[in-house]
Nucleic acid binder design. Structure first.
Lengths: 134, 134
DNA sequence: CTTGACTCTGAAGTTAGCTTTAGGGTTTAT
DNA sequence: ATAAACCCTAAAGCTAACTTCAGAGTCAAG
């Protein structure tokens, strides 16, 4: 199949598919006489794999590593794959915690503000951001 | 004070301070005869403000907007400031939810895997990422 | 046979928030 | 008086993941 169909099937943009090839995530496919890329359905599986991996937080580099495992599964172990998953889970947790901290801080600051239509000359949010103790 | 001292006091890098000036977050200060930037302590307050705002999730552009309010507080209202805070709180919540969804999905996939030292030929994580139903 | 949809390439552009580089003056302490 | 530490500029580089552009060839339908 040609790149347009592959893109439609995988839900990616045509340019993104070419980009993934350039970045080494998928192999360069054979070409038609006119020079068009000619993909097998295997590539569609790979793109779906990438999309899923990205959807749970893996970067493109990590997708490339995962994909390398995927294409030669017999040379790798479940422990290895699960290790990568758990590492990513930990990262996600850390990111959530960072966001949570920001949220808590900002919520406390925001809740303390009257939010009224009066001038912000005495706005406690601005004071807090400046670093003033209340 | 010169830029090095300002940087030390604010906890930012010297280059970052110059960058903030270029980006319009802080005004260009007067110069010494030798061409050195000569800051007042007011700038330090502004930089502290920026640091705090960044720490709770505001982008530099948003910091610039907040700072514009900060420097002419009497022309703005508490409602306006609180509105921006609550908008940011909502964004933070959405980001956390997105991370949570990724985490839940990946955790379910990861937990189902044995994680053993056997070959990944039948690894359920890889199957799930490929899109296979179990 | 022409029109519109599709494909190709390589390079440059995008966003955010800095950091680094290169090359050159100034201040301060000893 | 000299060396370390500091300051200046403009421009380029960095990361991530694409997107856009310019210019040109190919395919399918009517």
């Amino acid at each position: 199949m040609r790149i347009g169909e592959l893109a439609r099937e995988s839900g990616l943009a045509v340019e993104t598919v070419r980009y993934y090839e350039k970045e080494g995530l998928i192999a360069a496919p054979p070409r038609s006489p006119a020079g068009y890329r000619d993909y097998s359905s295997l590539t569609l599986h790979y793109l779906n794999f990438i999309r899923s991996a990205k959807a749970v937080g893996f970067s493109l580099k990590e997708c490339r590593d995962l994909l390398a495992i995927f294409v030669s599964r017999d040379a790798h172990t479940c422990a290895e794959v699960k290790g990568l998953s758990e590492e990513k889970l930990t990262q996600l947790e850390q990111q959530m915690e960072a966001l949570q901290r920001m949220h808590q801080t900002l919520k406390a600051i925001s809740d303390a503000c009257c939010g009224g239509d009066e001038s912000a000359v005495n706005c406690s949010i601005l004071d807090q951001l400046e670093g003033k103790k209340p």
